[in-house]
Design a protein around this nucleic acid. Structure first.
Lengths: 223, 223
DNA sequence: TGTACATCAGTGAACGCGCGTTCACTGATGTAC
DNA sequence: TGTACATCAGTGAACGCGCGTTCACTGATGTAC
């Protein structure tokens, strides 16, 4: 499983590189760009992955998009706003993946909890740059209300799944506490993973078994 | 408990500010500094706390130490080496705190596991900058062997404590797995905490109860 | 269908800035005699 | 104790660099008549 994850990351890097280069070398034939805002966001996303959220530069994104360094300011207030859009898109993407991953499993089963954890960690290892951006990057005293709301809604999903595992349709404090503990666990596992702290002698099992083990300690098997 | 932690942080910031200012305004009366290397490391540490590991600059550290920007290069190879020393010192400090915190508790008790978790999170919330530096900051393909070793030795402590809770004196794969899960949990909790994701509606209990709850799910009470 | 015009996306040059690092230097200190 | 000298920690000026942002501009496009 660990090898599989690593493989995915490498493949992803290669893909970024290819997309990047094609973006760099593409010459526009029209004066107007047509889709510059989306293209700048995509360039920003790729740069955040390649260099990390703190080494992203507007100038480089412009080079990638084949555009002058003044162009972004027709679409974004400043550098911060570009990063915020990438972070917000990441939150949405992660939410969608979470919902998609639990869908195949029956309501109120522990498998749904495991699925949520699995996809959380998969997102982190597949897009470590954006993952870091989403959490570590506070973005000026946390002013962005919508980012906060997106995060809360994801936690609410976990809380509801925990409640349903206990045969409840209302979220209680016990569910909130358990959801938070599960969140902490996968969040930590995500960071340890992308920071390269997952050696074989640290973690002797594969990821799926580990998730199952943990979930079993917090929620019962069937409703 | 949460209020207590916040209070600690604020106090710590104030302290940093005071120490910083005194360092800024202090004029040397001798040509030679005497203790520049240590003072630069301390200035670096404070800056990492104040601005974050990625916004640290050599120039600013020099200003703080009251020294020309060329001075550090008599003591450090480059910027990276300055940060590495701060990270290494942080690892050592955290290790010491962990050992000190478990000392009062009897061998093979769950209280020792809880103590390890408590001090891990306390370190993260007290020194978030250094904590981030230690983990997030990869430092050029992880070349530093000693940093890695320091991290491993800390994990080994947890593994041994888990083993002793089960009445073993040898670490088995089960202990390794449990230690890793506990690590993931407190690591995640640390990051969520310093990234401001601990709202009251997320986590309805205090930290100590939470740690106790989790520990109880992984290790038995008495040896 | 053709023309006049407003709009506004993207240009390119420039700005001031702080950065990491280098260099030849200086002058305080410790040591040998 | 006094002098000559080597050492080397810290200086200050300079370097080239890439950055974020601004500005007056240009020219493609869509619309009104």
């Amino acid at each position: 499983m660990l090898e599989l994850l690593t493989l995915t990351i490498v493949t992803c890097h290669e893909m970024n590189w290819i997309m990047t280069n094609s973006a760099e070398t593409k010459k526009r034939d029209t004066y107007h760009h047509g889709d510059l805002k989306a293209q700048l966001i995509e360039a920003t996303r790729l740069l955040v992955e390649e260099k990390g959220p703190d080494n992203f530069s507007v100038s480089e994104a412009c080079r990638r998009a084949g555009v002058s360094t003044a162009a972004p300011y027709k679409h974004f207030k400043d550098k911060t706003e570009m990063l915020r859009e990438v972070a917000a898109a990441g939150m949405v993407r992660q939410s969608q993946q979470m919902l998609a991953e639990i869908a195949p499993h029956a309501d109120g089963t522990r498998a749904r909890i495991v699925a949520l954890g699995r996809v959380y960690i998969r997102f982190a290892t597949t897009e470590p740059g954006v993952f870091r951006l989403m959490f570590t990057w506070s973005g000026e005293t946390e002013d962005d209300e919508s980012l906060h709301a997106l995060g809360d809604s994801k936690l609410a999903v976990v809380q509801m799944e925990v409640a349903k595992c206990h045969g409840r349709n209302e979220i209680t404090d016990v569910d909130r506490q358990k959801a938070f503990m599960l969140w902490s666990f996968v969040h930590g596992l995500s960071f340890l993973s992308i920071d390269g702290k997952l050696a074989d002698d640290n973690m002797p099992t594969d990821l799926e078994t580990l998730l199952d083990d943990v979930a079993a300690r917090f929620v019962p098997e069937a409703s």
